[in-house]
Design a protein around this nucleic acid. Structure first.
Lengths: 263, 263
DNA sequence: TAGTGGTCTAGACCACTCC
DNA sequence: GAGTGGTCTAGACCACTAG
């Protein structure tokens, strides 16, 4: 049942109106159409019937059909244009998104015991060089600088270097971070925030290698996160993972911004 | 106008029914509520009015309000539970997503000239070691192996090593890949596919360093992508970027799967 | 200019869950 | 048991755009 290269009006899969099991109607429609596309029965460029006709075939209202098609379009499976209608999208497998997850969660999910060990902490005036971590000058006033090690089964897992704005995050100077990581503590200490992330590969310096128990120069994954709340910088953090230890993974994503797994 | 720690019923921002400029109604509502949350006027844990009341205040139907609140919940700003209602979520700034983008697009967006240079190509039987790239044994039969360099302004930008399943991707043996990259060619050659991605940091080997014009051992970002279509492996590719050259970036994301930037 | 998707509405029923 | 969000409908108008 392979359609021609650019067929008009492919048939939907079996879609008996009331014979579905769980979930919502538009979810079932999304699943049905997605499988038609991924299985190759609806090749890229195929023209779909108009909303009203699909709604009739699936036995739903046009709004429900619209919701399903809209989601498939957001997920990158369909391209919708007024007047010309809906087509199966050209795949864009070259792009994807990978998730940066919470360190504690990650360690625990791997079945190992998590611990954070604070190495040093200082309250000091902001410096020029702090801009490397914050992306902008820290401004006048004091900053809290700290460094600590995330451990998995008491082996080094990630080296954290962090600056905190004590004007926003009260109590950073007093917190001892034995039970709570700086990141976890900040989540509860500041109301809401936006963050930017950067991922690079770097060679471990001598000092970093010693702390992470690596050879000098070994490749590490570096994640720098800068967090702002209400227009003010809140924290800047650099996470350094041994390259052999850590990896970011993404399972599928037709386009950046959310794959069919629906986030 | 800072609400107490756990206020009940915060007031929505100014929301004159017809005084908006562009975009849809639910988009405006989403924007309005998001700014209330990000600005800290609605702190985490705040209880929102029920849908019907919010709909009335914004002058829209309940379905429109539901769409807006649903989107905010998907984006991680709100938590919705039946009976207990809608609350401002606790921020989870520790997680985010970063985008892997098409190499050609990336080079061009940086204002440099893009070129692909095919270094070698062989058609040969599948081997045990191919499983490293494919994640599974290639099975019986021939595979197409190739290696090439992505260039930005004729400087090495990324080293690509790839296996292609010729049974699925017909013509891989004939294609010369001078104008078209293997990835770009495959996008048009196979109907639809799913891919998994893995990002690591590795030290450049002597051979890799020479090709990328790096010092031996320099840290590189490695992206491995495995692509399947209709249950069969299509291609496995390893992309090696000099760590100094490349970085993945993400601007914000309260939760994995799509930030407020909406993909 | 006609066809298509995009959005909105008013009302309805249902499922879940806290009390 | 009652309150809340989740979903669906039938109909309507609008905006965009290909022909």
């Amino acid at each position: 049942m392979s359609p021609p290269l650019r067929p008009t009006r492919p048939e939907p899969g079996s879609a008996p109106p009331g014979a579905r099991k769980g979930g919502t109607r538009h979810d079932h429609i999304v699943e049905d159409i997605r499988s038609l596309i991924v299985d190759g029965r609806w090749p890229p460029g195929s023209q779909l019937p108009v909303e009203t006709e699909l709604a009739e075939r699936y036995g739903v209202s046009r709004m429900t059909m619209n919701k399903a098609l809209g989601q498939l379009a957001r997920d990158g499976f369909l391209v919708r244009r007024k007047k010309s209608g809906t087509q199966v999208a050209q795949p864009r497998a070259e792009s994807a998104v990978v998730a940066i997850v919470d360190i504690r969660d990650e360690v625990r999910r791997s079945g190992r015991a998590y611990r954070f060990h604070l190495l040093a902490r200082r309250a000091r005036p902001g410096r020029e060089e702090d801009a490397l971590l914050l992306g902008a000058a820290p401004g006048v006033g004091e900053v809290v600088w700290l460094q600590g090690l995330h451990l998995a089964d008491d082996r080094p897992f990630c080296l954290e270097t962090r600056l905190i704005n004590p004007a926003i995050a009260e109590g950073a100077k007093a917190q001892d971070f034995t039970d709570l990581t700086p990141g976890g503590w900040l989540l509860g200490a500041v109301p809401w925030s936006v963050a930017s992330h950067r991922v690079r590969a770097v060679n471990a310096t001598a000092a970093e290698a010693k702390l992470l128990e690596l050879a000098v120069g070994e490749a590490c994954l570096e994640i720098v996160r800068r967090t702002q709340a209400a227009g003010e910088w809140v924290t800047g953090v650099r996470l350094l993972y041994p390259g052999s230890e850590h990896q970011l993974v993404a399972n599928f994503g037709p386009e950046a911004g959310g794959g069919p797994g629906r986030g």
